[in-house]
């Protein structure tokens, strides 16, 4: 796991700022009235990290913290507002255009990402043909190969998305991404809308393909137990910033950021033996608006450890223990807490 030194994915000081969501009419009216532009939203703020080949990075945090936006920047779907992403030494984007097929994405809702009027086999063949990975003549065999690899009967390639169950559609989405021969796979909540028993099937498929293809992965999920299971390293996000980054077991058993600890406390869990039923300990308050985040450390209003320093100064992401960093002024105190059971 550690010891792998060849950096494969580099995210260098990436930010993504969204302009205000305005209709054309609103824009014109505001312009005519000389109103100041409404505030823009920093969805991802100065994120830097690296990932070695064959590793999986888990990206966790509550909704709106910027997981999908960061995933899309890495995948070259969004251009970063500043900073850059390189995969295997190659830039993912140049002049606002994606210039590589080495990064592919699997989204949460395959129904939304599959064209309802296109046969699923054609959906899988489309990308590889367009990018010259296979010729039109070879595409049929290519589709059959990937259908089999994701556990789908290749004779179903002529059907439409609505003829499949949620779990099968997610297999199709995985086949479509892998048919592009990616080196880096971004999975954005790939099992979130699936039932528990189907979730396990899709996670197993992911584990199997990842090993066989030696894929490097970014796995986004709000489900901490799923992330614990599939990732080597994990990044915890809060309001656009990475607040903790480290080796998964360490982060989950000995968090060094109070938000990570609080998040772990919020998860209802069944202990491995089914013995202990943990009582959840809720975090107080709600996530503040990203349009107007609290100054200093964004977690200050909800943090049980907050001091005056916390709202005065943004805590930088710094190394707290070998293989583990946190963005917190009081990370050492958090780390001194007793080790906790795994989720």
């Amino acid at each position: 796991m550690s010891g792998a030194t060849d950096t494969y994915l580099t995210i260098d000081n990436v930010s993504k700022i969204f302009g205000p969501r305005l209709t054309m009419g609103e824009r014109i009216v505001r312009g005519a009235m000389r109103k100041p532009p409404p505030p823009s939203l920093t969805a991802v703020s100065r994120v830097s990290l690296t990932l070695a080949k064959g590793q999986t990075l888990g990206l966790v945090g509550e909704s709106g913290c910027g997981k999908s936006t960061l995933g899309r920047v890495i995948a070259g779907i969004y251009a970063p507002s500043s900073g850059a992403v390189t995969v295997d030494g190659q830039k993912v984007m140049e002049d606002g255009r994606k210039i590589t097929t080495a990064v592919q994405t699997v989204f949460q809702d395959p129904f939304a990402s599959l064209d309802p009027r296109m046969k699923v086999g054609d959906a899988v063949a489309e990308g590889p043909i367009a990018h010259g990975i296979v010729s039109r003549a070879e595409s049929r065999a290519h589709v059959e190969k990937w259908f089999s690899r994701v556990g789908l009967d290749p004779t179903l390639a002529g059907r439409y998305p609505h003829q499949f169950s949620g779990g099968q559609r997610q297999r199709i989405a995985i086949a479509r991404a892998l048919a592009m021969n990616p080196k880096l796979l971004i999975c954005d909540e790939p099992v979130a809308s699936l039932d528990v028993s189907i979730q396990a099937q899709v996670i197993n498929l992911f584990l199997e393909l990842r090993r066989e293809l030696n894929l490097t992965c970014v796995f986004i999920s709000h489900d901490l137990s799923v992330v614990r299971h599939v990732s080597d390293r994990v990044a915890v996000m809060y309001l656009g910033r990475i607040v903790e980054l480290g080796e998964t077991r360490q982060v989950f058993t000995r968090p060094t950021h109070p938000y990570t600890a609080a998040l772990l406390d919020s998860v209802p869990r069944i202990a491995a033996e089914g013995e202990v039923l943990m009582e959840v300990k809720p975090i107080s308050g709600e996530i503040p608006s990203p349009l107007n985040p609290p100054p200093g450390c964004h977690f200050t209003p909800r943090c049980p450890r907050a001091t005056a320093e916390c709202s005065a100064r943004i805590p930088p992401l710094r190394s707290i223990a070998p293989g583990q960093s946190a963005a917190c002024h009081h990370a050492e105190a958090q780390m001194a807490e007793p080790e906790r059971a795994e989720v």
């Binding site: 028993s197 396990a200 137990s225 299971h229 599939v230 069944i270 089914g274």
Partner: peptide
């Protein structure tokens, strides 16, 4: 949770990630 009687309940509990060591194949219900 501790002693499920029905194979379906057992299957549900077994297929959850915490029931298997991290990184290993989950015990899925077919």
């Amino acid at each position: 949770l501790r002693n499920p009687i029905h194979p379906y309940t057992r299957g549900l509990l077994d297929s959850m990630p915490h029931a298997t060591r991290p990184g290993e194949m989950l015990r899925q219900i077919p």
